[in-house]
Amino acid sequence: MEYVIHIGIVLGLYMILVASAQLVIGHARLISLGQGAFFGTGAYVTALCMLNLGWSFFPALLTAVVLNAVIGLLLALPAVRLKGDYFVLTTLGFQFIIFQLTVNLDRLTGGPAGLGGIPSPSTPQFLPISQSGYLFVVTLILVIIAFTALFLLQKSRFGRNLKALCDHELLYEISGRSPIKLRAQVIAVSAATTALASAVYAVYMSYLAPGAFNLDQSIFILTGVMLGGLSRLRQAVVGALVIVLFPELMRAMGLPATYGPSMNQVFFGLVLLVLVSFTVVKRFQSNERRNQ
């Protein structure tokens, strides 16, 4: 039972992470390698609010969401003026900066040793479920919140504008709207929803180390987006399912622990390579050619 709950929580977290990344990568056509960093900032903010300020979980979560949106806007400031390769490079730079900060600000983040003892939110008295069962319920609720928010956003004028921007950037500018502003908003929203996953991760693990939020994590999330699909929310669910369950499946098949992780990397590496060269590139290219 505990195992099922564990998988359920991890799955929920990656559903949020992949769906948030899909907004940037799929809908705004901006390849971001900084999603892992946003995951990290949200987690550290939650942990620090709870540890240093003694806040309870939900205020800490809200703070993480808001701060992540702000950090998203700060990244967007230089990044959205750039397109294509240059955008990727800025997000990569951002990823490295956040990683280095978590490693080197050891007074605050505990450095490479990490940050431990993050308290779990206490289960309400009236709920006859275990600690992790409660976290699973919280995760479920946050997944619903994140997906509803992203769904409504895509159905709104914001979503229509985003579609129009990817369709024909010059025409979008002619309509009097600023592509830069819209891209910045997309990055901020994506960072904010990412923080929902971060907060649960922090209290579920009760321990944070920089290694969980490095480039590997960003690429892992990116793989989830590519695997599932670039446009629909249910594709994000599929992507999350595959990236979470595939490694578990390999383990269940009895692959030795020493090979497991590298096998997974080989598999995901191959998948990414195939997807990027055959499907994704075409979509991005057809778009760029039109915008020449």
């Binding site: 229509r160 579609k163 990817c166 369709d167 024909h168 025409l171 979008y172």
Partner: peptide, 8 residues
């Protein structure tokens, strides 16, 4: 040439 949003 084309001056509409083709996917909208």
């Amino acid at each position: 040439g084309i001056s509409v949003f083709g996917h909208l």
